[in-house]
Computed example of a mutant assay.
Amino acid sequence: MKISTTAKAGALESNDVLVTVMPNDQGGVQIQLETKRVIFKQFGKQIEEVVRDKVAEMGVDNVIVKVQDKGALDYTIRARVQTALERALASEMC
Protein backbone atom coordinates (compact mmCIF):
# COMPACT_ATOMS: atom_id res chain seq x y z
CA MET A 1 0.00 0.00 0.00
CA LYS A 2 1.02 3.57 -0.60
CA ILE A 3 0.01 6.69 1.23
CA SER A 4 -0.38 10.02 -0.51
CA THR A 5 -0.95 12.31 2.47
CA THR A 6 0.76 13.27 5.71
CA ALA A 7 -0.60 12.15 9.09
CA LYS A 8 0.51 12.35 12.73
CA ALA A 9 -0.02 10.49 15.98
CA GLY A 10 1.30 11.02 19.50
CA ALA A 11 2.66 13.97 21.41
CA LEU A 12 5.92 15.62 22.41
CA GLU A 13 5.42 14.88 26.10
CA SER A 14 7.64 12.87 28.40
CA ASN A 15 7.47 9.10 27.76
CA ASP A 16 5.65 9.60 24.46
CA VAL A 17 6.57 9.93 20.81
CA LEU A 18 5.29 12.04 17.92
CA VAL A 19 5.17 10.04 14.69
CA THR A 20 4.63 11.75 11.34
CA VAL A 21 4.20 9.70 8.17
CA MET A 22 4.43 11.16 4.69
CA PRO A 23 4.79 9.83 1.14
CA ASN A 24 8.29 9.00 -0.04
CA ASP A 25 8.56 9.87 -3.73
CA GLN A 26 12.04 8.33 -3.88
CA GLY A 27 10.65 4.94 -2.84
CA GLY A 28 11.27 2.67 0.11
CA VAL A 29 10.87 3.14 3.83
CA GLN A 30 12.91 5.97 5.32
CA ILE A 31 13.07 6.59 9.07
CA GLN A 32 14.05 9.95 10.53
CA LEU A 33 14.71 9.53 14.25
CA GLU A 34 15.02 12.51 16.59
CA THR A 35 15.85 11.76 20.22
CA LYS A 36 18.42 12.60 22.87
CA ARG A 37 21.93 11.56 21.94
CA VAL A 38 22.26 9.10 24.82
CA ILE A 39 18.95 7.45 23.91
CA PHE A 40 19.96 7.27 20.27
CA LYS A 41 23.23 5.55 21.13
CA GLN A 42 21.58 3.03 23.40
CA PHE A 43 18.19 2.45 21.74
CA GLY A 44 18.34 3.99 18.25
CA LYS A 45 18.61 0.70 16.37
CA GLN A 46 15.84 -0.86 18.48
CA ILE A 47 13.50 2.08 17.80
CA GLU A 48 14.19 1.90 14.05
CA GLU A 49 13.57 -1.86 14.08
CA VAL A 50 10.23 -1.43 15.87
CA VAL A 51 9.16 1.19 13.31
CA ARG A 52 10.26 -0.92 10.31
CA ASP A 53 8.50 -3.99 11.68
CA LYS A 54 5.20 -2.12 12.15
CA VAL A 55 5.39 -0.52 8.68
CA ALA A 56 6.09 -3.93 7.11
CA GLU A 57 3.31 -5.56 9.15
CA MET A 58 0.84 -3.02 7.78
CA GLY A 59 2.11 -3.52 4.22
CA VAL A 60 2.95 0.12 3.55
CA ASP A 61 5.62 1.03 0.98
CA ASN A 62 7.25 4.29 -0.03
CA VAL A 63 6.86 6.12 3.25
CA ILE A 64 8.93 8.51 5.34
CA VAL A 65 8.41 8.00 9.07
CA LYS A 66 9.59 10.87 11.26
CA VAL A 67 9.92 9.76 14.89
CA GLN A 68 10.36 12.44 17.57
CA ASP A 69 11.02 10.36 20.68
CA LYS A 70 10.66 11.56 24.25
CA GLY A 71 11.43 8.25 25.96
CA ALA A 72 8.54 6.10 24.68
CA LEU A 73 8.52 2.34 25.17
CA ASP A 74 8.28 -0.06 22.22
CA TYR A 75 4.53 -0.67 22.54
CA THR A 76 3.88 3.08 22.48
CA ILE A 77 6.03 3.52 19.37
CA ARG A 78 4.21 0.66 17.63
CA ALA A 79 0.81 2.14 18.51
CA ARG A 80 1.76 5.62 17.31
CA VAL A 81 3.17 4.34 14.00
CA GLN A 82 0.05 2.24 13.42
CA THR A 83 -2.29 5.13 14.21
CA ALA A 84 -0.43 7.56 11.95
CA LEU A 85 -0.46 5.07 9.07
CA GLU A 86 -4.15 4.29 9.60
CA ARG A 87 -4.95 8.02 9.54
CA ALA A 88 -3.00 8.48 6.31
CA LEU A 89 -4.70 5.48 4.72
CA ALA A 90 -8.17 6.51 5.94
CA SER A 91 -7.84 10.02 4.50
CA GLU A 92 -7.26 8.47 1.07
CA MET A 93 -10.54 6.54 1.27
CA CYS A 94 -12.64 9.64 1.96
Rank of each mutant, 00 (worst) to 15 (best):
I39D: 13
E86L: 15
F43L: 14
T20Q: 08
R78S: 14
N62T: 01
A88W: 10
D16M: 00
V38M: 05
A7I: 07
S4W: 04
E92S: 14
N62A: 07
G71K: 07
M1G: 10
A84L: 10
R78N: 09
N15G: 00
D69Y: 08
L18H: 02
P23C: 09
R52G: 02
T35Y: 00
V63W: 08
L12D: 00
P23T: 05
M1H: 10
K41P: 01
D53A: 15
M22G: 01
Q82S: 15
A79I: 11
L89A: 09
G27S: 03
K8N: 08
T76E: 07
D74G: 05
D74M: 04
D16K: 06
V55R: 03
I3D: 02
V51K: 04
C94V: 12
T6V: 14
A84Q: 11
V81I: 14
K66W: 05
I64F: 09
K2C: 01
T6Y: 01
R87N: 12
E48D: 12
E34W: 04
K66D: 08
K41L: 14
D53R: 12
D74I: 01
V29F: 02
A88R: 08
K2E: 13
V60Q: 07
V63D: 09
D25P: 13
T83G: 06
G10M: 06
A84N: 13
R80W: 13
D25R: 11
A7R: 07
I77C: 12
K54G: 06
V38W: 10
N15S: 03
V19K: 04
V81W: 13
D53L: 09
V65M: 07
D16P: 00
S4G: 15
I64C: 06
V67C: 04
V63G: 10
V17Q: 02
R37S: 11
V17C: 04
Q46P: 05
L18T: 00
G71P: 09
K36S: 07
T76K: 14
A90N: 11
E48S: 13
V51R: 03
R78C: 11
V50T: 10
K45T: 15
K70L: 04
Q30T: 05
S91W: 01
T20A: 01
L85F: 13
R52P: 00
V51T: 05
A72C: 06
